[in-house]
């Protein structure tokens, strides 16, 4: 590794660690953990039948959802001005006036971003594990440690994918405000707009629903059931255009170890094994990895080929 990459990475790391953005987002994440803790503590003392389980599930969902929302925000906050900010300040000219290859600049920044994200998400993952053990009463078995480890890696990946995307946008933009606005817009589409619009899009694709009841017959019509099934299927497919959905599918599977399955026409609750999660969820992870790599490679190529005027 070039010495210059390490010099740039060290400087970037130091800037990021001192940045208010990082600490604000980490603070919010910690607050969410504390909030979740309060909720689950109430669940643990609750005697109401079913309430405890429900609140526990909601608690776990809270944590994965908070990472699904705040992880990308952290990635954007760290990356949106990576190149455009240096251009705006004029510091890029001073750096490139030295015997530094352009690729060292982008590699140094990527390395620093990776380190910060690993630390931030590592802290968050550790907090989740501590809460899991202390509050939810999870036992520290090898299986659970691996689950938390994978969950942390996944959280790093979703944050890194948005970091890579915002670095790419900052490489393409002349102004940081532009790259920030576009990054936030993409995040909002992935996090809120697509999940909300997916039913509308699916319905537009499938056409109007058939009648719920066939005339003269009791119960829900066969066409309506089929329509609903196809609607749900299409809705899921549309949601998969969002990186956040890919994260949430695997994160929820890792954190909620139980699923309800139909066995011999009976619904039973059973544990999902890690093998099952990985064999069904690998492509969700692959999409996150590929997206991250593509963004970094594009940033690299565009930046290396560009000239400062």
């Amino acid at each position: 590794m070039s010495r210059f990459i390490l010099v740039i990475a060290r400087k970037e790391f130091s800037d990021m660690i001192r940045s208010k953005r990082l600490w604000i987002i980490l603070f919010i994440l910690i607050l969410i953990h504390i909030g979740t803790y309060s909720m689950v503590r109430y669940a643990s003392v609750s005697n109401l039948k079913g309430t405890r389980k429900l609140l526990l599930i909601r608690g776990i969902s809270n944590l994965t959802s908070s990472i699904a929302i705040l992880g990308p925000i952290l990635g954007i906050a760290l990356g949106y001005d990576a190149i455009s900010g240096e251009r705006e300040r004029g510091t890029l000219k001073l750096v490139l006036a030295r015997p530094v290859y352009r690729d060292s600049v982008i590699n140094g920044k990527a390395l620093a971003g990776l380190c910060i994200i690993v630390i931030a998400m590592g802290i968050t993952g550790l907090l989740t594990m501590v809460f899991g053990v202390l509050i939810y009463g999870m036992s520290l078995t090898l299986n659970n440690v691996i689950r938390f480890g994978l969950y942390t890696l996944l959280s790093i990946l979703i944050t890194l994918s948005f970091y890579a995307m915002s670095v790419l946008l900052s490489t393409l933009s002349k102004k940081s405000s532009t790259s920030l606005a576009i990054s936030i817009m993409i995040w909002a589409i992935f996090a809120f707009i697509l999940p909300l619009a997916s039913y509308m899009i699916a319905e537009a694709m499938l056409g109007p629903p058939p009648m719920v009841h066939e005339p003269g017959k009791e119960g829900i019509s066969r066409q309506f059931i089929e329509y609903s099934r196809r609607l749900a299927e299409l809705n899921n497919k549309i949601r998969q255009f969002s990186l956040i959905t890919h994260y949430q599918v695997v994160a929820n599977a890792l954190m909620r170890s139980e699923i309800i399955v139909k066995v011999d026409s009976r619904m039973i609750r059973r544990t999902v094994t890690l093998n099952e999660i990985l064999s069904h969820g690998w492509w969700h992870i692959a999409i996150l990895v590929i997206f991250t790599l593509v963004c970094f490679i594009l940033s690299y190529v565009i930046f290396v080929r560009s000239e400062e005027r």
């Binding site: 000219k93 001073l94 530094v100 290859y101």
Partner: peptide
């Protein structure tokens, strides 16, 4: 790169951190 090793440049519109 050999040139940049040997020259000192004050570019137009430069800035510091």
């Amino acid at each position: 790169v050999e040139i940049r090793k040997r020259i000192g440049l004050l570019p137009e519109g430069f800035g510091f951190y």
